[in-house]
Lab assay of single mutants.
Amino acid sequence: NEEPLPEGWEIRYTREGVRYFVDHNTRTTTFKDPRNGKS
């Protein structure tokens, strides 16, 4: 039961299956979860 991502964020996966987060607001990507700060 995960809380929803902030507005404008999306979860994607690399070809290796590593989860990362896309911030469409700033057009950046990060491996850090914007909901809780954990990677």
Results as ranks from 00 to 15, higher is better:
25 N>K: 10
28 T>L: 08
33 D>Q: 01
16 E>D: 13
23 D>I: 01
15 R>A: 14
32 K>F: 15
32 K>T: 14
25 N>T: 09
11 I>V: 09
33 D>N: 01
13 Y>H: 08
8 G>P: 02
5 L>E: 02
38 K>Y: 12
12 R>T: 04
30 T>Q: 10
35 R>Y: 03
4 P>R: 08
9 W>H: 01
3 E>C: 15
10 E>Y: 06
26 T>E: 06
8 G>M: 04
31 F>Q: 12
38 K>D: 14
28 T>M: 07
22 V>K: 06
11 I>P: 03
4 P>A: 11
24 H>G: 07
17 G>T: 02
29 T>Q: 12
11 I>A: 07
27 R>Q: 15
38 K>R: 11
37 G>Y: 09
11 I>Y: 04
37 G>H: 11
33 D>K: 01
11 I>H: 03
5 L>Q: 02
39 S>K: 12
6 P>L: 04
36 N>P: 14
18 V>G: 07
33 D>F: 01
13 Y>M: 07
8 G>A: 03
2 E>S: 10
28 T>D: 06
16 E>N: 15
11 I>N: 01
23 D>F: 03
1 N>L: 12
35 R>H: 02
33 D>L: 00
24 H>V: 08
32 K>A: 11
12 R>H: 08
34 P>V: 01
34 P>M: 00
7 E>T: 10
37 G>P: 14
9 W>I: 03
4 P>E: 09
23 D>T: 01
35 R>W: 05
15 R>F: 09
26 T>H: 06
2 E>F: 10
36 N>C: 15
32 K>Q: 15
5 L>H: 02
11 I>F: 05
15 R>N: 12
8 G>I: 02
23 D>E: 05
14 T>M: 03
2 E>Q: 10
16 E>A: 14
31 F>H: 14
14 T>L: 05
26 T>N: 09
21 F>A: 00
7 E>M: 11
36 N>M: 12
28 T>V: 07
35 R>I: 05
24 H>Q: 08
33 D>V: 00
14 T>F: 02
39 S>I: 13
25 N>L: 09
30 T>F: 03
3 E>D: 11
29 T>S: 11
29 T>P: 08
7 E>A: 12
1 N>R: 10
10 E>D: 06
5 L>N: 02
3 E>R: 11
36 N>T: 15
20 Y>S: 02
3 E>A: 13
9 W>E: 00
7 E>R: 11
6 P>V: 03
1 N>Q: 14
2 E>K: 09
2 E>C: 14
3 E>W: 09
28 T>A: 05
30 T>M: 05
19 R>L: 09
6 P>Y: 03
28 T>S: 08
15 R>P: 14
1 N>D: 14
20 Y>N: 01
29 T>E: 15
35 R>T: 06
26 T>W: 02
18 V>T: 09
38 K>F: 11
19 R>P: 11
1 N>A: 13
38 K>Q: 14
16 E>L: 12
24 H>R: 08
38 K>S: 14
12 R>Q: 08
26 T>F: 03
27 R>M: 14
25 N>C: 09
10 E>P: 00
19 R>M: 13
25 N>H: 08
2 E>T: 10
22 V>S: 02
39 S>R: 11
9 W>Q: 01
11 I>K: 06
21 F>N: 00
